[in-house]
């Protein structure tokens, strides 16, 4: 192919096509971002209004001056939605659930994965299958019998009844098993030659090695635990144990009740408090979060 004419003339159209294409790409991304963002913005804006305005006009685009007041009421006054519990107590309960769920899950699943990967144990295959079958069935499909068993054990309205049944799945174990298997074989051999027993090896070598993995999983599990809804709704009837997400149900019941004007601003404030901690964690630890999500779910 030997054309003698130069193709300089084509330069302009190619460049312009590029620009147009970029514009389209950015427009799509901006639209997508707005779609994700706007509902939350509306909630935040609305939380700055008094209840009458919201009851009359619905969600607000702009900001008013009631925000501090609404948040104060949401945090420290118990009367608005539930009878006896304030937002602060619910926040604490949410933290307990999120942390308890994440820590509990990481602890038991690391131990189990360590036993399965690093020990010569005949019963290991059986334990493996016993644990991994739980990946198949989510809590929702066995919710009623689980509830009855927890009730039978007297764990209704307790933190342990709230947290432990949620831990009964193998996601964490599966993940740590994968990770431990990817740790070089020579490491345990070297450690044994250096005289480290299984406990020392676990604490001195494996745990430090797993640090980023643990952090990544912790973030995911915290968010998952914090956001639990169905189980807390069933298991906590005592308002002192309500989590924020559980409290949304109360808000919804009040809003559905047409007989009085609900505290909309306070409701929005509570909803914001309910989403703030997990959102902040995800934003701050974005790369760990993505790592945890992509690597633990596969």
């Amino acid at each position: 192919m030997t054309k003698t004419e130069t193709n300089r003339g084509q330069s302009a159209p190619r460049k312009r096509r590029f620009k147009l294409e970029h514009l389209l790409d950015h427009s799509i991304l901006i639209l997508g971002s707005l779609f994700m963002l706007v509902p939350v913005y509306l909630i935040i804006a609305t939380s700055s209004f008094d209840r009458i305005t919201v009851a009359r006009k619905g969600l607000q685009y702009t900001f008013s001056d009631q925000m501090a007041e609404n948040f104060h009421m949401a945090m420290f006054e118990s009367t608005s939605f539930t009878g006896t519990v304030d937002g602060f107590t619910m926040l604490m309960n949410s933290l307990i659930l999120g942390m308890g769920f994440a820590i509990g899950k990481i602890a038991i699943s690391m131990m189990a994965a360590y036993a399965i990967v690093y020990f010569r144990l005949r019963f290991a295959t059986f334990a493996f299958w016993l644990i991994f079958t739980t990946l198949l069935l989510p809590l929702e499909v066995r919710i009623l019998p689980t509830y009855e068993i927890v009730q039978g054990l007297g764990m209704i309205n307790t933190y342990s009844g709230l947290i432990i049944p949620l831990i009964a799945s193998a996601t964490g174990t599966f993940f740590f098993r994968q990770f431990f298997r990817s740790v070089p074989e020579e490491l345990v051999e070297a450690a044994r030659i250096d005289g480290a027993g299984p406990v020392k090896f676990f604490i001195d070598i494996l745990v430090p090695l797993s640090k980023t993995m643990i952090a990544a999983i912790f973030i995911i599990m915290f968010v998952v635990g914090w956001n639990q809804y169905l189980w807390p709704t069933l298991i906590t009837t005592d308002e002192g144990l309500f989590t924020l997400v559980r409290g949304i149900k109360q808000i919804m019941l009040v809003i559905a009740d047409n007989n009085k004007i609900p505290e909309f601003g306070v409701a929005m404030a509570l909803a914001i408090i309910a989403m703030l901690p997990p959102v902040l964690i995800v934003l701050f630890f974005q790369s760990w979060f993505v790592k945890g999500l992509v690597e633990s779910d596969k």
């Binding site: 991304l29 997508g32 971002s33 994700m36 509902p39 939350v40 509306l42 909630i43 609305t46 619905g58 969600l59 968010v223 914090w226 956001n227 809804y229 997400v245 949304i248 149900k249 808000i251 919804m252 809003i255 409701a267 909803a271 309910a274 989403m275 997990p278 959102v279 964690i281 995800v282 934003l283 974005q286 993505v290 999500l293």
Partner: peptide
């Protein structure tokens, strides 16, 4: 585009309901 992951389903439902 990814931060909405952290929002609990019922909170999302509440926004929708509003």
């Amino acid at each position: 585009l990814m931060w909405v992951y952290a929002i609990a389903p019922p909170v999302a439902g509440l926004m929708g309901a509003m």
